[in-house]
Design a binder for these strands. Structure first.
Length: 517
RNA sequence: GCGAGUUUAGCUCAGCGGUAGAGCACUCCCCUUUUAAGGGAUAGGUCCUGGGUUCGAAUCCCAGAACUCGCACCA
């Protein structure tokens, strides 16, 4: 609860009036003048009997609905239909005769002719600035020039703006300001609003699709004492009364599989934030949204089907098509998508068949022969992965499932049923980007212990992102887990692809930035 | 973490060793059927910060900050 102000006097209008010396942000003289002028207008509204920050307005319609409803109204035609609209003033022409009013749905013109407004309202009109939130009540008409308008009888201030909006022709283009002051970006740039609205719809549609398939949505710890389920550096924080360091989760995976063991449901999912303490780039934000699901009695083939269903369904629902343009590249998301093993991809691209390579040393030599840098301690699997990433990955523009990953880079995936060097894992690539990662989940506790021990050995030899031993997770597996398919989808990346956004910050309302000072 | 670039009025940008500029926004005046900005007149600056070179620095040099893009790490 917000703490109540100690002084009842602070509620009085007198106490609310502002003196220029206080509450003034550090700005130039000019900016301070603009702000002071608007504070003066705010007081003038009060003198006219209107609270510049009122409590309620009876808005009867949004702008887009009116534009649609009166689409066929001919130029110069007036109606008797009375509406109340509200939104932000984006432009004032002819001293307020014409006001462009913007709400989240769109724009409508507010027409303020002196014939329809009292002398007092005409005075109030002079107090309206670009940026103010106002409400207008009047009749619907279309001007001779074709602009749908509200012929205003009542004008109300609903939220006085003290700061000037960016110029409307060029808009707000400074990327830093757009991310730091997203509210300004949203006011000025409809495409930013559109992208973030689509984000919301995409997430809602994924959630609905999974719920309709009887997946149970669950929540697992974000604060963990052991950051597992992925290979990444975690954020460290501290719990004061427990007197322990804790980690922000890098993945929910191990907890979700504990729930599968417990049988809370045969299908669970979590759609929420992960945190990784790593570099920031156009494709990486320190906190990002991941959908992870686990389905008992399913394997990675089922997960490929489900990935295709999720992506194509969401594209169809949100965009109305599966054919999309991403930064000038045509991508068709319609399934089914090709499924090709990592070894076959590398073989096709480079001519080198890793299936025929038996030793780690031969694998390293093969990679070097292709001009791929490998460490001296890299094993067959790491060498294969590096060649794939270097030579193949960026060429996979259309959707594809890359299957059958090396065992040693996948400590939580079940051994491949036909090849013990591999695991049943796939990553789905679109535009070269990984948007999904899935396994037939490793359910054998004895094998899982060996995998963790192998990871611990890697950790000892300097890989600080190798997975840690999680005894409780192994204990859970020792009680018995059904065969299980697991799937993770990087939601931000998927949204980038679907909204044609080249930077992850465009699909995150408040991306991580350093404080300015 | 490394490299390159950017930072000048509220916004969008010029200027690149010699008194700080434009458009739009703001303020004032005129104007009530306009369409990115109706007409006119004003005012507005920590040229990112701190050092240095110079008679003189927004401009050149050094250090730092934030941002952008690569690379590294990763999803």
């Amino acid at each position: 609860m917000i703490k109540r102000d100690q002084s009842p006097m602070s509620k009085t209008p007198a106490a609310q009036s502002t003196t220029p010396a206080e509450n003034t942000p550090h700005t130039s003289e000019h900016a301070a003048q603009i702000r002071q002028g608007r504070i003066d207008k705010l007081e003038a509204w009060r003198k006219l009997g209107q609270n510049p920050f009122p409590y309620h307005f009876e808005k009867t319609s949004d702008n887009a609905t009116l534009q649609a409803k009166y689409a066929d109204l001919e130029n110069g035609v007036e109606t008797e239909d009375v509406v109340s609209v509200a939104g932000r003033v984006m432009a004032l022409r002819n001293s307020g005769l014409f006001i462009d009013l913007q709400d989240p749905s769109g724009k409508i013109q507010v027409f303020c002719h002196k014939e329809n407004l009292s002398a007092e309202m005409m005075e109030a009109l002079k107090l309206v600035d670009v940026g103010d939130v106002i409400g207008a009540t009047g009749t619907i008409r279309r001007t001779p020039r074709g602009e749908l308008s509200v012929k205003t009888r009542q004008l109300q201030i609903l939220g006085k703006s003290l700061l000037p909006l960016p110029e409307k022709y060029h808009g707000l283009t400074d990327v830093e300001t757009r991310y730091r002051q997203r509210y300004l970006d949203l006011i000025m740039n409809p495409e930013s609003r559109d992208t973030l609205v689509k984000r919301s719809k995409i997430i809602a549609d994924i959630r609905k699709l999974l719920l309709d398939k009887d997946f149970l949505e669950v929540e697992t710890p974000m604060l963990q004492t052991l950051a597992g389920g992925a290979a990444a550096r975690p954020f460290v924080t501290h719990h004061n009364t427990l007197e322990i360091d804790m980690y922000l989760r890098i993945a929910p995976e191990l907890f979700l599989k504990r729930l599968i063991v417990g049988g809370i449901s045969e299908k669970v999912f979590e759609l929420n934030r992960n945190f990784r303490n790593e570099g920031i780039s156009p494709k990486h934000n320190p906190e990002f949204t991941m959908m992870e699901l686990y389905q008992a009695y399913a394997d990675y083939n089922d997960m490929m089907d489900l990935t295709e269903e999720i992506v194509t369904t969401v594209a169809q629902k949100v965009l109305g098509t599966t054919k999309i343009d991403f930064q000038g590249t045509e991508i068709d998301l319609a399934g089914p998508w090709p499924r090709k093993s990592m070894i076959d991809c590398v073989k096709e691209e480079t001519g080198v068949d890793f299936a025929a390579i038996d030793t780690d040393e031969a694998a390293r030599t093969a990679a070097k022969g292709l001009g791929v840098f490998v460490e001296e301690y890299d094993t067959w699997g790491y060498a294969l992965e590096k060649v794939f990433e270097d030579k193949v990955e960026h060429k996979l523009i259309q959707p594809i499932h890359i299957t059958d990953y090396p065992r040693e880079i996948s400590p939580l995936a079940k051994e491949h049923r036909d090849n013990p060097r591999l695991v049943e894992r796939f990553e789905t690539r679109v535009y070269g980007w990984e948007i999904a990662n899935a396994f037939s989940e490793l359910s054998d506790p004895l094998d899982q212990r060996q995998r963790f021990e192998s990871q611990m050995a890697q950790r000892d030899s300097g890989n600080d992102e190798a997975h840690q031993m999680d005894e409780d997770y192994i204990t859970a597996l020792e009680y018995g887990m059904p065969p299980c398919g697991g799937l993770g989808i990087g939601i931000d990346r998927l949204i980038m692809i679907l909204t044609n956004s080249p930077n992850i910050r465009d699909v995150i309302a408040f991306p991580t930035l350093k404080p300015k000072h």
